[in-house]
Design a protein around this nucleic acid. Structure first.
Lengths: 241, 241
DNA sequence: AGAATCAACTTGTTTAAACAAATTTTCAAT
DNA sequence: ATTGAAAATTTGTTTAAACAAGTTGATTCT
């Protein structure tokens, strides 16, 4: 779905970098050269390049040019930044995913749940527990809370496959923003029961609130990761405060 | 240092949001209104707003407007995304920082170090171990590797205070990009010795490669965090791949 | 009353142009 | 050969304008 010009250019440049067309530390063609190559305005080029900057692929230097700082060995990991479903990231890494639904219920948010999730008291919710396998190993235990009036008619069968696919392709909900917090927590009995933790006594926990395109938070999820398989990549840039 | 117009606008809008000028879920003034308020072009407004989007403060909706999704309780944490020194984040959260230098040496990268850090074999490096205290508690054990010919004349005294302040204000090195990987690792003897881990047997580990404005990776750092005080915030947006 | 249409908003994309700021190259003078 | 100034080239900021696309509200028609 190449809808916009700058996305096309972004993708083309990205794949060229990944293919090794430019050496590590080599400068990319200048903006003027790229304008000619892609037959577009300078703004469009700059927009594509700035997306590569936030990906950590390149670095711009005023007066000098745009330097390739992509290193293939580092970039291949389970998670790279953005919002991605378990299915998507598994497939991207050519792994075999499986999901087991441990629990599927409907609840109403009380004070305790409201404090934990951020949903208002009295919200009607789906609550699920799901176990995610990769190549046969149980890696992630998920606690999902969905607003019932947004994720309408969610079923156990859908939850076994891909909830995100259902939300996006059937309900046409577009997911936009997700606020995440990563912490390390002691294991619980339920963690111990389902995840093979070996002699680790804690897990990597990612709590996230997800918003749809109406600006409504419709999902709260706590993902509890087996620590030896957890890996989160990030690209930070020095920004003005 | 308000150098650019869009930074000024960004900061002003941000502080207005933080001050509660707009209700949660309320729409901000439209672009046209903001153009009049700040006497600038539409592009400049859009640039400021898009910075707020990446901060997770607002969400834009085509045809509708820009919605405030800032929640004060969530935003106050030890780390929010960007590149920040220990000193900076401590001060931002009004805490009393202290740094103890456990080890300060000069080394040459062999195969093992090169593989771990990403520096070429033979690189001349400063290697330090530092213990960071907050309000009297030892929270972070840092292993720092700096390229000697970039972080010239680094001393134990500087390392006790703030290396980043030295790099930026004395050497005028501007830090631009940092590639980070977060994992959970078993504790080592040295972790156990310096950090009060209680009955946790693992830590949150953040490994980072930092680049200067010449595109040279000049720092590799492994930060080992006491798990009960580790917290990493992030804002993900669904982006085109 | 209900439906359809249109107008008036909103944000999203793209182009063009001008100037600023930093770096590199060129070239002339010493 | 070295220095130094000027020119050319690079990215960074800002403005202006036009059109696209989505939403809302009013108006009109049935």
């Amino acid at each position: 779905m190449p809808k916009t010009k700058y996305t096309d250019i972004y993708r083309d440049l990205k794949s060229r970098i990944e293919a090794g067309e430019y050496e590590f530390q080599e400068l990319l063609p200048s903006e003027n050269q790229l304008i000619q190559r892609y037959d577009c305005s300078r703004n469009t080029i700059r927009r594509a390049v700035s997306a590569l900057v936030t990906d950590g692929y390149v670095q711009t230097m005023q007066g000098k040019g745009v330097r390739n700082i992509f290193q293939p060995t580092l970039q291949t990991s389970f998670t790279i930044g953005g919002i991605e479903s378990f299915q998507e990231s598994a497939l991207r890494n050519c792994q075999v995913p499986k999901t087991e639904v441990l629990c599927f219920t409907e609840i109403t948010a009380d004070t305790k749940i409201s404090n934990r999730t951020g949903f208002p008291i009295g919200s009607e919710l789906y609550y699920l527990q799901r176990l995610h396998y990769l190549d046969g190993k149980a890696l992630i235990l998920n606690h999902n809370y969905f607003l019932k009036h947004v994720a309408v008619n969610l079923t156990r069968e859908i939850a076994e496959h891909s909830i995100y696919e259902y939300l996006e392709q059937t309900l046409h909900i577009s997911i936009v923003t997700s606020k995440r917090i990563m912490t390390v927590e002691k294991m619980t009995e339920i963690d111990e029961k389902y995840l093979e933790l070996g002699d680790y006594n804690c897990l990597a926990v990612v709590s996230s609130q997800t918003y749809n395109s109406d600006g409504i938070m419709f999902e709260y999820t706590q993902s509890r990761h087996r620590p030896d398989y957890f890996r989160f990549q990030d690209n930070a840039t020095r920004r003005v405060i």
